[in-house]
Structure formats: C-alpha cells, structure tokens
Design a protein around this nucleic acid. Structure first.
Lengths: 108, 108
DNA sequence: CACAAGGTACGTATTGCGTCATACCTAAGA
DNA sequence: TCTTAGGTATGACGCAATACGTACCTTGTG
C-alpha cells in the first residue's frame, strides 16, 4: 500500500467504477481534457470551469479519484489532479483514446 | 433511415449513451457474453438468465437497443438480440474488447 | 492577525435509475 | 379456440446519484 488516500492501487482499477465515473458528462469532460493534454499534466479542480458549485466539484473529483482515473496530489495551497494514464492504459487499453476523441465532449 | 425502430443509425452512436448503458452490471454482462460469442450470434433476452423480472429485462434491452449496442430483430415468436459489433467498432474501437475481457463480469 | 482562495465535510432536496406488478399483445402448438 | 411463452407499455416504489448551501479547514498574502 502506497498512499491509498482514496486512490485505488493499479491492480484494483476495475471496469465497473471506471465506466460509472465516465457515464457522467461533466466527469467525462474532465477526463477528456486531461487525456488530450500532455502526459503528467496537473490541473486544479476549479480550472475546468464546470457549471457547478464547489461542493459538487469536490464530489465529482472524489468519484474520479476513487475510480482510479485521476490522482490528486497536495500542492500546498490547492490540490492538483492528474490523469493516471499508465495505470488505466495497462488495465483498459484504448479507453482514454475513446474519451479523448469524443467530439460530444465539447470544450466550447 | 432504415428501420430506426429504436435503433440509432451507425453515425448516431455516441459515447455518452454507450457508457451509460455499460455502467449497469447486468447490461454489461449481456454485452460481455455477446462480445465473447462469435460474431452474428443471436440470443433471446431470456437466455441470459438475469436475476430480474420480464419487465425489467425489457427495460434493460431497451437501453441497450437505444444506445446502439444491440440490434433486436423479430423472430416470429420471440425477439433476438445481436451485438452491433461492426458499428460499435467503427465508432469506438476497442471498447468491446474491454468489456469482453473484464473478469469482473462473472458468468459463474 | 485578518482575509481571500481552493477544497472538504455534512446535511439536504430533487432527480434519475433500477425494480416490480399488472395488463396487454403476438406467435406457436395442442 | 384455448393455452403457453416471450416481449412490451404503463404506473408505482425505493434507492442511489446529482445538486446545492453552509460551515470548516488549510495555505498563502497583505
């Protein structure tokens, strides 16, 4: 066990929670933006400009974190979220490409 | 428009409804079994032995049908469901492999 | 210290989803 | 024709998920 601060181990990443997390349009938008960005990109929760309040934002990122899609690291003042690209690609190869290529996930 | 009897055209198949459909464990189990079977396999709704009633079964297959995952064709007495493998693979390549390979989708 | 910014936790309302029961339809067989 | 089997449509119920407001914590800055 490394941190397990709500983050599942790479082997514990399962299809069910991942699909459940990606079923929500807002969460899928977050993953799509992260997937299109270069690997290792760190972004704060608020930087995605989702049309929800702070508490709802926290809820969505908790789902993303507990599903294993993103890792949240403390950056002093705020908390940065970065995509667990390698872990997901190892367990579910090609999934992130599908989300990234989805034109429905409008960023405009 | 061909049939469009609740079946979306191949171009209309979108990631959102597909993921929403696959988020449910019962529906994912159906798709997993169909994906593991040879292409063109036709199965009746009841043949999957899902632990739900008839009406719930109809509901789930409606979601699968309207998302574009399966096509339901009238077979006189009953209605056979078959996986729209080519259509899905064209829009979302690799997705069916992930569902088929998921060991969480226990069939035992 | 005071204050603002970013997140979290708790409680709560509301919506959606899965589930069922019932009633109805169609096709095949006795 | 009657019965049985497989599906569908509708309505209702319960639970989970999304959403919000509020309060609170932490870090950084004035």
């Amino acid at each position: 066990m490394t941190d397990s601060d709500g983050h599942p181990e790479p082997e514990q990443i399962a299809l069910g929670p991942i699909l459940a997390a990606l079923a929500d349009p807002l969460r899928r938008r977050v993953i799509a933006e992260l997937a299109r960005a270069p690997d290792g990109t760190e972004r704060t929760c608020a930087s995605f400009n989702l049309p929800v309040t702070k508490s709802t934002l926290t809820h969505h990122f908790k789902v993303l974190r507990e599903s294993g899609l993103v890792r949240q690291v403390d950056r002093g003042n705020s908390r940065a979220a970065c995509l667990r690209r390698a872990d997901i690609e190892a367990k579910l190869p090609g999934l992130l490409s599908l989300v990234a290529a989805d034109e429905t996930t409008g960023q405009g």
